[in-house]
Structures are given as C-alpha cells and as structure tokens.
C-alpha cells in the first residue's frame, strides 16, 4: 500500500476546518450555523486521527471518541435551545435575537 504524506492529510483537515469556519460566520440560519460547527468538529477529530496514525498509537482514536460524544451532547442541547428560540421568537434568524445589545 502506498503511503500518504502527513502533510496532505493535515492540510485536508485544515481546509475542512476553514470551510466550517466560513459557514459559521456567514450563515444566518441558526441550525445551519450549528451544522457548520459540526464540520469544524469533524475536521478537528480528523486531525487527531491523523496524528494517532502517524505515531501508531490509539490515543488519537480515543480522543476522537471523546470529541464525538461531546459533539452529540452539544448538538442535543443546542437543538433544544433552538427549538425554544423558535417558540419564543417564531424565527430562526440570528439577527433577530440581539436583545443582549449594548
């Protein structure tokens, strides 16, 4: 099997992270913003796996499991909050929930 250079894999993770970042900062729908956060989390987990594979240790995969669990919990709580927000403001536009202004 041919080998893959670490650089390429890491660059892939970096590109995915950057794309996720663009999504977070430019989407106006809160659900899609959360989705972009998931992309970032996934990219970070990918970076961990790459590192674990480079050193041939299971620690990277362990870390990915933790990240996965955390992402699941975060998504559930986040979506619950989004549901509440929808029920209060009847909209999913983040620009409308700026009551913390000033």
């Amino acid at each position: 099997m041919s080998q893959i250079p670490v650089h390429y894999a890491m660059l892939l993770a970096a590109i995915l992270f950057a794309i996720g970042l663009i999504g977070v900062l430019s989407r106006r729908n809160i659900i899609l913003m959360l989705m972009s956060v998931e992309i970032m989390l996934n990219a970070a987990g990918l970076a961990f796996i790459i590192a674990g594979s480079r050193w041939l240790q299971p620690d990277g995969q362990v870390m990915f499991i933790f990240i996965l669990a955390m992402a699941a919990a975060e998504v559930s709580v986040g979506l619950a909050l989004i549901v509440q927000m929808y029920q209060q403001h009847k909209t999913l536009d983040v620009n409308s929930i700026n009551k913390m202004k000033g």
Partner: peptide
C-alpha cells in the same frame, strides 16, 4: 467599546476567530 456589543452572534463568533 460598548458599540462592540451588538448582540449579534456572528459578530461575536468573528471576534473569537
């Protein structure tokens, strides 16, 4: 400084980045 508190989530996220 108080103009920085827009209450806009995207603005805060930009700040973090």
């Amino acid at each position: 400084f108080s103009r920085m508190q827009t209450g806009n989530i995207r603005w805060y996220a930009t700040g973090i980045v």
